[in-house]
Design a binder for these strands. Sequence first.
DNA 1: CAGCCGTGGTC
DNA 2: TGACCAAGGCT
Length: 331
Amino acid sequence: MTSIDAPLTPAAPASEAPGALDAAEAPEASAAFEAPALPTPPAELHGPVLAWFDRHARDLPWRHPEAGAWGVMVSEFMLQQTPVVRVLPVYEQWLARWPRPADLAADAPGEAVRAWGRLGYPRRALRLHAAAVAIKERHGGDVPSDHGQLLALPGIGEYTAAAVASFAYGQRHAVLDTNVRRVFARAATGVQYPPNATTAAERRLARALLPADEATASRWAAASMELGALVCTAKNEDCGRCPISGQCAWRLSGKPAHDGPPRRGQTYAGTDRQVRGRLLAVLRESTEPVAQAVLDKVWDEPVQRARALDGLVADGLVEPLDGGLYRLPVA
DNA sequence: CAGCCGTGGTC
DNA sequence: TGACCAAGGCT
């Protein structure tokens, strides 16, 4: 049985003991030669951000102790590129139906895809199911607490492994998601946006900013992420509500606009992804196998339509049957 | 490592 | 209205 180490929700007033919020451990000190000098000592950021988090953290279900490590893990999968508001209802249904990894592992992968609904990127549902199977086989049904073992699970990368270890097990990890990267880019580096891909410099910076104490580091990870999600947003950031606006390198330098190559922006209309989405939507709605002729109606252009369907089959999201029938994967 | 993988809301 | 964005991962 797994459980959350410490509730992330308020109640306790922020301990202002500066000693407990000290900078990172010794090994990082040598790397500091390559790293740009921090405009503000880490400890002067921890207090304000943690205090702000105590007051303003959202009351999200996966932050409750009863969510357990499985709840945290499910939420992290669903939150990969999908906003909180859309995750909430699906999360509740998911945990009610599959309260433990073994429960999901015992069901068909296609049921996970169906329950995923319109969260997007349905391969995540497939990977979450595969991860549940692996957890049952390799870890006796309990979500592992070891970072390396988490990283070895399908669908869990650098971010999610750190997030589960930190949020579910209270460990000390640099949790670098898009929110944290943006907060650090602005507050510490002084630029509007982080690079497109996570860099070694960002990891170094995140480690340097990590509180030494394990429990504080865990709260810091959640707090810095929440700050990026609620205040230091990509557009229309609200510096007036930011607890570290007075120390923000970007703001102090006049909030210069992002320079360099334009940030990635991909169109959706007319792409294979749109076709795949339509095909899968039909299959999700049907308990019975669907005839090819029915699927053909979702898209006019036959070459792209066939390519999209083939792709779904290749990805394991769709199972072809004899007689031109298709369904969500049973095995 | 750049490109791909869904979906819906916002400005 | 179209482009951007949302707790990434995989190849």
